[in-house]
Amino acid sequence: MTAQDIIRTRAKELLESGEVATFIGWEAGRFENQTTPLVITDAADADKLVFNEYCVNTLAKYVRDVIPRGKVGLVVRGCDSRGIIRLVADKVIKREDVYLIGVGCPGIKDRKTGEMLKKCAECRHNNPPEFDEMAGEVAEKPVAVERFAEVAEVEAMAQPDRSRYFESVYAKCIRCYACRDVCPCCTCRECFVDQRRENWVGKQNNVAENRFYGLTRVMHIGDRCIECGECERVCPMDLPLMKLNRKVIQDMNDLFGEFESSLSLEDTTEPLIEYRLDDVEEFM
C-alpha cells in the first residue's frame, strides 16, 4: 500500500469511528501537478485525499480554524508536525486535540518547473518528529545545505548596499499579510498590525511602515520559527523573508548555542523570551 492508500483508509476509519471530527489532507487540484488542502468531515470523502510530490501547503495552521468542531486528524510531514508542536507550545491547541498521521516527505516540487521547491531544498527535517502513527516508510534525510548561506550573502554587503537592498525589498511589500496568515508561529489572537487602538504600524504603505512590520514580525517569530519556508513561498511579491528569519536564528545560535525550534514537545524553548540567571549578557 502506498502512503496515499494508508491515509485514505485511516482517515475513513477515524471519521467513521468518530475518533476525529474533521480530517485535513490534500486533494487533487483543478490542474495537473496541483493540489489544494482539503478538510473533510464525512468518511465518504476520504477517497478524495491525495498524497504526492505536489502537496505544497503546510497543514498545521488549518487546525486552529477547525478545532471548535472537535478532534482533528491530519497528515503531517516534518514541517506540518513541527507546526503542530509549535501550536501546542503556544497553547493554541492541546496535543490531545489532534491525531497525527505521519508521512516521510521526499520534498515537494514546483508545479510549474518540476524542480524541488526552495523551502524543501533547504529542509532539515522531512520526517515528522511528532506523530501518532506513520503511513508508510520514513523518507531519506534531505541533502544538507548551508543553513545560513543566504544570511552570509547579505552580511557580505557593504553597509549602504545592505541598506539599499532592504529598502528595495520593503518597497515591494504590499502588506497583504499572507506571510503572517500562513505562519504556524503567528498565532496571536489579534496581530499587532491589527491593533488599531495602539496603532503600532501605520496604515500607509511605504518603506518605513513596511519595514517596521517586517522587523517586528521577525522578532515575534524569530525564536519559534520552524523554518518551513511557507512565508517566502506564499509571498506574492517574492520577498526573501527567510533571510531575516535565519539572521535571527543565526544570532541566537551565536548567543545561546546551537538552536532549532520545535523539534519535540518536551523542549519548546524560546530563547528570546526565556530568562535565566546565567543568561549570556554580552551587552552588559
Partner: peptide, 13 residues
C-alpha cells in the same frame, strides 16, 4: 484577556 492566549511568556519573565 481577549488578546491573551495563555502561552505564559510573561510568567517566566
Amino acid at each position: 484577556e481577549t488578546l491573551c492566549q495563555g502561552d505564559g511568556a510573561c510568567v517566566g519573565i
